[in-house]
Design a protein around this nucleic acid. Structure first.
Lengths: 349, 349
DNA sequence: TTGTAGGCGTTATCAT
DNA sequence: ATGATAACGCCTACAA
């Protein structure tokens, strides 16, 4: 059954190679290669002839062979914790656009927020020829850093920042940004704060954000130990569940739930709604990231605006100069600023 | 400046190779290769010794070299129109998961909804060693199809369906799905329909959906030519702008705006709000896709639920069997069903 | 079961 | 300006 239809498989014809082009153009493979890689080295006459053949037969250089021979690919690898929600989408898009400007191609992999898996992905991307890597955050086994060092792989950390000259970073200070938001929250009179965050053990951004909240709280003399911290992976569902737990189990209901990012905050919003709580009348909710979602939900989320696009762009520039030149680019700390919207209001009595 | 810090660059040490492993394990490269690719061919004793070395020095096979020698990569390429919003995210995720089960890796590229660019991406992915491709929709230059055929590249079209045995497809019938929704719309008494859709010239899914609406409309004797069709690329902003135009410029305001997908519909919702129109009291709005967003906005979107995950999974299975076996997989038409939610109500007077 | 050796498509170093 | 030719790292007949 379905014998006829399979016929196409029998006419398989593999891609044209440099040799094919060379033969058809009556030159050597070396010349064809030069036409493609350093056109100025070959006289216009032959060049045009060669390129005509290239177009005609639809020749495209074999990437693997090229990588093998040239030992570079102009490909940059990026390993992000998740592709499932929009958290990294905008930044990565900008990263890619800027890389394109510099003649690089992007290869993306996802680590599912698991450092061990990230290490595997690092190997995979390098095996695939990545010339350099973009990594998210600082937290990873020292074996991973050792590996990168041993191989001499240039890499840049983003979505976080430290002065640290050993590890290049282009990002923002998660602790300071979240602290700024928390300060606004306490200014609104909130004294009973709950935190819904991603698991902190393997996620330095989450950890820093929580630290920022605690810092602001202790600045105004709140009891740190009374602050309930609920950890759950980033997702709307999880945010709702965690918030639900926080709201229904506490003896003294918190007046504000500060979430580790907007995705969790949207979940928190949903939980509040399902409990019949009005936001921000009965309960305030805050997020982090300022992704598109933050302005779509109702009420709009008070959050921290992260300059995703700028960050992606600068990270690309850093990597590009790391690869092209000898002067090491500066670490960059971008500004993430608080955005007050409807979901934060005065503390309910 | 920054001389000291650059030192690490000088200790560059390239990746270990098969040769290294072979030498350290005291066997030939062939044996190492076998340990990795067909372990059962080598006796347990040597195998363990070899694998120990592999782990110890952190060997990872060079992908390009492997592709060059083996002429297959177990890599599947997917070219999707956009990564900017969630439209393809869920399906692609499932596609990837299922591919993983079958031992394949996914490589993604984006065509930005431009067929010419897609053709370039096809070449790129093949040059990078993709063994097969996943493409979205049927519309592309015949040159692209010719190219695929000439090269004998197995590929599957998804997000759309045709009986057509020449082109394998795993998807759903966009026209019929949207027609079903449109029938519900007219049942609600709507007679003045407006359509906000992605540009139809290069997008067969968009075209089919519009056709579905027109079909349902003419079934009940509505004047097709009176239906305003606004074309704009998928984005919330664009959806809002197009809807704004439709609502403010029409002499007779439509009672329902049917959008080509949920993203546009969310924009439409925003436009309605900014004009002070209550949804669905003053105006009904419908979407397509049933992405997460559809249930987050207020009011929730009436839309067509596309079985994204199932589609991704089945597409992966189809490609896998296309690659592994000789029997050609059946084309599959999945069901996309209408989901009634708050944004659709009886026609306003 | 294991080793030997040729070749995959490019780039880059020499010559010419 | 162009042409030979030796790598690049791996796979896979084929031989032993």
């Amino acid at each position: 059954m379905a014998e006829r239809k399979g016929r196409a498989r029998t006419t398989i014809q593999s891609s044209p190679t440099l040799d094919d082009v060379a033969r058809l153009a009556g030159v050597s493979t070396a010349t064809v290669s030069r036409c493609l890689n350093s056109p100025q080295q070959v006289v216009e006459d032959t060049r045009e002839r060669v390129l005509a053949v290239v177009r005609e037969i639809g020749y495209a250089p074999n990437f693997g062979a090229r990588a093998l021979a040239a030992k570079r690919t102009n490909t940059i690898g990026a390993i992000i914790p998740t592709m499932e929600n929009a958290i990294f989408a905008r930044g990565l898009q900008a990263f890619q656009e800027e890389l394109g400007q510099h003649g690089f191609t992007l290869l993306v992999a996802s680590s599912s927020y698991r450092p061990d898996y990230e290490e595997e992905q690092i190997r995979t991307l390098l095996a695939r020829g990545a010339d350099a890597l973009l990594l998210i955050g600082f937290h990873r086994p020292s074996s991973a850093y050792a590996f990168l060092e041993r191989r001499g792989v240039p890499f840049v950390v983003s979505w976080a920042y430290r002065q640290d000259a050993q590890v290049r970073s282009v990002g923002f200070d998660n602790r300071i940004a979240m602290r700024a938001l928390a300060r606004r929250v306490v200014e609104f009179g909130h004294k009973r704060i709950a935190i819904v965050t991603a698991p902190c053990d393997v996620n330095d951004r989450a950890r820093e954000r929580v630290a920022g909240i605690l810092e602001a709280a202790s600045e105004v003399g709140l009891d740190i130990d009374a602050i309930r911290i609920e950890e759950t992976p980033y997702s709307i569902e999880n945010g709702a569940a965690a918030t639900h737990a926080v709201l229904s189990e506490s003896e003294q209901r918190p007046t504000v739930v500060m979430c580790g990012n907007d995705v969790l905050a949207v979940g928190a919003l949903r939980a509040a709604k399902s409990l019949g709580l009005h936001v921000p009348g009965d309960l305030s909710i805050t997020g982090f990231d300022d992704i598109e979602l933050a302005q779509i939900v109702e009420p709009c989320l008070t959050t921290v605006h992260v300059p995703h696009r700028e960050m992606g762009r600068q990270a690309a520039k850093a990597i590009s100069s790391l690869l092209r030149t000898e002067d090491v680019p500066q670490n960059q700390c971008l500004e993430a600023r608080v955005v007050l919207r409807e979901s934060l209001g005065p503390a309910a009595s």
